[in-house]
Amino acid sequence: MIGVIDYGMGNLFSVSKALERLNIEYKIGDRPDQLHGCDGYILPGVGAFPDAMKALAEHQFIGFIHQKVEEGVPLYGICLGMQLLFESSEEGGWTDGLGIFPGTIRRFSGIDENGRAYKVPHMGWNQMNIRRPEKELLTDVENEYVYFVHSYAAVTEDEDILYATADYHSDVPAIVGRDHVVASQFHPEKSGRAGMQLLENFCRMMCRQ
């Protein structure tokens, strides 16, 4: 059973339907007491970082997420849900995140290394460069195209957590992970075959635990 963390800022409909297509049991809860005892969790997210942290706190999910991560329960962060797992974000003034991964969330500068302007948001299908093919999450996932929509990206010095990157005027973290905590900047439920495979692999990780 997957617990989908509902703090009012996710596209829960699409995630739910993707899980249904994969025949994975899930429940959605907007309070920790509704979600205790699941085998794994999905932290979705669309919107602004400061609002999301505020909403997580209001729904009492901050302590809950830390507790589950410490207990070793698998967690998958999607899009903004991935960004929240880092230490802080500069979106709307610096805001602390959950601090599970080292690094910060920064806005794309919009100017490349040659001083030329490029478009922000990073929007559309971009190809992944898989760096950690041995990871269970990446079973049967190749250097495929996945769908990105974001104006802020993770910046980290910890190369070990970079499972896959995508090239958009810099190496953009696409999939990150450490042990049982994984996340993708893109929406797996909107990223065709590769995205569905990632969700399936996450469930396999979860069932094994």
Binding site: N11, K17, R21, V149, S191
Partner: peptide, 30 residues
């Protein structure tokens, strides 16, 4: 469409208020 497909989609036409935007996105449009 949102139930059956794993690609992004946009919905337009007759969206006049913030409530219309919310309803469309909450029903699965991207």
């Amino acid at each position: 469409v949102a139930s059956e497909l794993a690609i992004p989609f946009t919905v337009g036409g007759g969206i006049r208020t913030l409530e219309d935007i919310k309803e469309t996105l909450r029903n699965g449009a991207d």
